[in-house]
Simulated assay, not measured.
Amino acid sequence: MEIVTSILAGILFTTGIYNLLQKQLLRIIIGTSLISHGAHLFILTMGELKRGNPPILVEGVTNYVDPLPQALILTSIVISFGVTSFLLVLAYRASQTNQTDNMDELRGNEHE
């Protein structure tokens, strides 16, 4: 199972980096979102996908699931949601002010 999630995380990183290298602001934002989702899967995979009981201390149960990767992923989801919403507002404001979402035009490269 770890091989499948590792491959999926790699695909998410690859498509995220491809979108980061595009010229439209919305594709760049989608790229950052895909990279954050790939990081979530990577953290989950590195935390070893174990099956066991919930991490609630009860007598007689010895096989627990590690709660740390899940807590890190929940924190990362909240942070990536905040970053994505900030980037969307920033891109909307920049496109409304400059009448374009092309990065070359926003940089002022008129010759290309």
Rank of each mutant, 00 (worst) to 15 (best):
H111N: 10
I30Q: 03
A9M: 02
F13G: 01
T75A: 15
A9W: 00
G60H: 04
K23N: 12
H111A: 06
E48L: 09
I17M: 13
T97Q: 11
T45C: 12
P67H: 03
L34N: 01
I29A: 02
Q99K: 13
I73E: 03
R107D: 07
I77D: 09
L44T: 04
S85M: 15
I73N: 01
S85G: 10
F42P: 01
N53Q: 09
Q22M: 14
A71P: 01
S85Q: 14
V58A: 09
G52H: 05
G47E: 11
V65E: 07
D101K: 03
D66A: 04
H40K: 15
I29S: 00
L26C: 12
K23Q: 13
S80W: 05
L21G: 06
A91G: 02
F81A: 15
I17E: 02
Y92M: 14
G82K: 06
N98L: 09
Y92T: 13
L88K: 02
T75S: 14
Q22E: 11
L74V: 09
H111D: 04
R27D: 04
S36V: 12
E110M: 08
N102P: 00
D101Y: 02
A39H: 12
D101S: 06
Y64H: 09
I77R: 13
S6R: 03
G10W: 03
I7C: 06
L68W: 15
T14S: 07
L44A: 08
N98K: 07
V83Y: 04
Y64V: 05
G16L: 01
S33H: 08
T100Y: 07
L26N: 09
I7S: 08
L25P: 00
V58P: 01
G108Q: 05
Q70K: 06
A39G: 13
T84W: 05
P69T: 06
V61F: 14
A94G: 02
P67R: 03
T97G: 08
I56E: 13
K23Y: 15
F81I: 10
P67S: 04
G10K: 03
V61L: 14
E2D: 08
